[in-house]
Design a protein around this nucleic acid. Sequence first.
DNA 1: CTCGGGCATGCAAGATTATTGCGTCTCAGC
DNA 2: GCTGAGACGCAATAATCTTGCATGCCCGAG
Lengths: 165, 165
Amino acid sequence: MPEQPPPRLDDIDAHLLDLLQHDAGRTLHDLGEHVGLSPSAVQRRIARYRRDGLITGQVAVLDPHRLGPTVLAAVLVTLDRESVEYHRAFAERMRSDRQVQQCYRVAGPWDYVVVLAARSTRDCGRLGDRLFKADGNVRRYETLMVFDTVKTGLALPLPAPEPSR
Amino acid sequence: MPEQPPPRLDDIDAHLLDLLQHDAGRTLHDLGEHVGLSPSAVQRRIARYRRDGLITGQVAVLDPHRLGPTVLAAVLVTLDRESVEYHRAFAERMRSDRQVQQCYRVAGPWDYVVVLAARSTRDCGRLGDRLFKADGNVRRYETLMVFDTVKTGLALPLPAPEPSR
DNA sequence: CTCGGGCATGCAAGATTATTGCGTCTCAGC
DNA sequence: GCTGAGACGCAATAATCTTGCATGCCCGAG
């Protein structure tokens, strides 16, 4: 039973997590002022989030275009045969490629949505060939080149403070 | 001239940035050991990345399913009329909604790819209605419910160490 | 070839921040 | 009303970050 019940979160937890998922660089003192707790109480809560696996990591977000020429693309993919083994192999390939930023298995006619990061349109094309054409089991894929990133992030909506209790 | 030329990055910069975009919680000492620098040198480089806008932020990553029931979806959207003003309004709506995790404007028959986070399939449906149906200018949208997150993150591929120079 | 400025580094204070022990408080269960 | 678990604040301690300073390297000017 790898799935544990989600730990209960009070309003302060929600507030804290929301602050952290937008800026994890703040001090415990600063966080404490926003949520109305002492630094040590904040620290203990955050330690608990980590223990519970609620916070899985802490990452620096880079600006793609400051890093040099960068091209993003969303790719829709449909596999040929539906065997579990083929899906596993495909997923593993996605996970292990550094240019694959995100990969979701989805419902509907498409099997996967993949977000790629490349250094040029040309590079992006080659990457698609390598990831999807070379794989004998991809029936079809469609590349949606990204013109513009309107919004990015991994932030999740947190339950609003409950009026009751 | 808002676009400045990307600052030059040596191999140590690439290594450091790569470490940081996977785990921004390490100490300067720890980072220094990996790249072969003292903590203070590491600190100064990181400060420079921030100044240059290369590192735009530092965020905590939450586990969607530990947070409670969570449903993700990728939505493909095509606007009705192509006026600049309509696009601006749509983009602004995406940016300001907490349940919109990511939004890309793309090439091809679809105008946008949007990633949503909701608390249930039902909630996701309502969210789609609110974001896209209520907007009189959305011609058509297609919701790809996410079964499984194969890979997630915002990490970008960094230039491999150049042998020359 | 030599000199000098710019820049990055390491080291060592000094300042800030994180962690932990301890006593207190609240609340649920008995 | 009692008891134990859990969360809190405070304060001391530990760890980490920040900064001043002297040194070394690279490169262009003279």
